[in-house]
Amino acid sequence: MKPAPFRYAAPRSIEELLALKAEHGDDAKFLAGGQSLIPTMNFRLAQPAVLLDLNTLPDQNFIVETSSGGVRIGALVRHSDIETSETIARSHPLAHEAIRFVAHPQIRNRGTLCGNLAHADPASEMPAVMLALGGRFHARSAASDRWIDASDFFLSIFTTALEENEMLCEVEMPPLPPGSGTCFLEVSRRPGDFAMMGVATVVSLDEAGRCAEARIAYCSAGETPLLAPGVAASLAGEEPDETALLNAARQAAEEIDPPGNVHLTSAYQKHLVAVLTGRALRTAFARANTSASQ
């Protein structure tokens, strides 16, 4: 089908963009990569009266390292920019590893990270990655300017903590803890399909080789990306041997309770939670060991 008519603006500054949003409120939608918005408009599920196109904004396509070793990513950074960024591959290999699972190359060439996060599809990989990394989201409107923690951002399916006129204009990934390792894994039916289950892990080791901290996040596991704080608490202080990993896998399948869908049952998703948690933790700890010995 074809989208319903709308009025269009391609502002040259964020201030102008946010002023237009303040003027038109709920009638107006931001257009970044458009890889989720345009299909829903083509189906006429969404019929915004006004589209505010970000793509002509200058200076929003930045990937910059902060002085603390974190990385900030601007509103127009596309998935393919992250895929090819040497900075991110070095500083946040988890994001680099996960981005290849986001849709197909044609979509990644157009879709943006910020747009993906603001869309808040619980099956999407990067929201889970941001939870695992403890990312922070910069939200701006004509009247406000604030940072939101990833753990406070995702409220429900396609629903975030962004207020009506706020735009997610930047994401910051804090530096990984010292002695850390990460791993992203997912199972999908074909490359580029939505995840049947996906897991993002960040672990760090103390000087004695015990788990100092673990963060484990899942996509396709519920109405939002989900953390497994119980599993993380059990791992802390433990030596990450096979017994600990198997216990973590078993505990994760109890803590995460995926709803199932038309393609797969909840029981099978739980099975995937256990298998992927064990594998991802094993790889993440092995990588942490490698980084600690360097």
């Binding site: 458009g34 189906f43 196109d53 060439n109 157009r110």
Partner: peptide, 27 residues
Amino acid sequence: CEHGVCGACTILVDEKPVRACLMFTPQ
């Protein structure tokens, strides 16, 4: 499909493949 699934409309924009059905012409 006109919703970005089938890939039949893939073209190159600035040498990168994209779905032509998921871009508005002014872009």
